[in-house]
Design a protein around this nucleic acid. Structure first.
Lengths: 118, 118
DNA sequence: GGGGGTGGTAACCGTTTGGTACCTACTTGT
DNA sequence: ACAAGTAGGTACCAAACGGTTACCACCCCC
């Protein structure tokens, strides 16, 4: 035990800044599906196959609190609620692109097909 | 009718590909510190303030199994083990850059003009 | 042979995260 | 009237994740 367990909290680290917002298994996936445009609650639930309504609700609430996602109730026939990326949420776009480049690069290094076909 | 699109789960989805490798609270941080060059076990433990040796070991094992990190035992006086990014691990670099851009962009939106127009 | 530093391993436990099941409230269609 | 679809909320659990505490093996130095 050389150093005290928790002596210095991170000052202004971009990594911590990022990880504070994007944690857990579902948040990246939610943002992923929202980048294609506004999406309704039920749509997201079907997009993210396997997510429970409880978790989807809580994650959307968190993202709304963090200002990455906006919630809009539509005055439509059964009642629709539309979720969309805010301007802050759109800041996530470079990360999506990077994740795509990452997985393409890994596929490339695996020596498999050039990721364009399949 | 209810859902305009329920696109099938792409078996080679870049997002899932990415998330398979980078999950949990510590893995991104470990990769972050390794990108500056090879690092010894104890160095990483000090870099990642608060991580336990158990978790650090298990994460490094996983990263090694995924081929993102290499492990090398040095024949030095006390005994050193050096971890480094492999070529596959270097594919993560765009993600780092994107995370940095993300946090800068958020800071920009926080501190600057509230230009909420569209 | 004791102390200190390295790099772990194993057992146990607590917190966090997510899942299941059941519920409300409203609206539309039959 | 009643079923079905919309968007949730709540209570209760299960599993994953991570932390704590020990302890080991090795090496060097004194």
């Amino acid at each position: 035990m050389t150093s005290p367990s928790r002596p210095a909290p991170p000052p202004d680290c971009p990594l911590e800044h990022y990880l504070h917002v994007v944690s857990g298994a579902w948040v990246p996936r939610i943002l992923w599906f929202l980048r294609f445009g506004p999406r309704r609650f039920g749509d997201l639930r079907r997009d993210l196959r396997g997510i429970s309504t409880k978790v989807l609700t809580s994650k959307l609430r968190t993202l709304e609190a963090d200002g990455l996602v906006s919630r809009r109730e539509l005055t439509t026939s059964p009642r629709h609620v539309e979720y969309a990326l805010t301007e802050r949420g759109l800041a996530f776009e470079p990360v999506f692109e990077a994740m795509i480049r990452f997985s393409h690069r890994l596929a490339e290094l695996d020596g498999a097909v050039p990721a364009e076909r399949r």
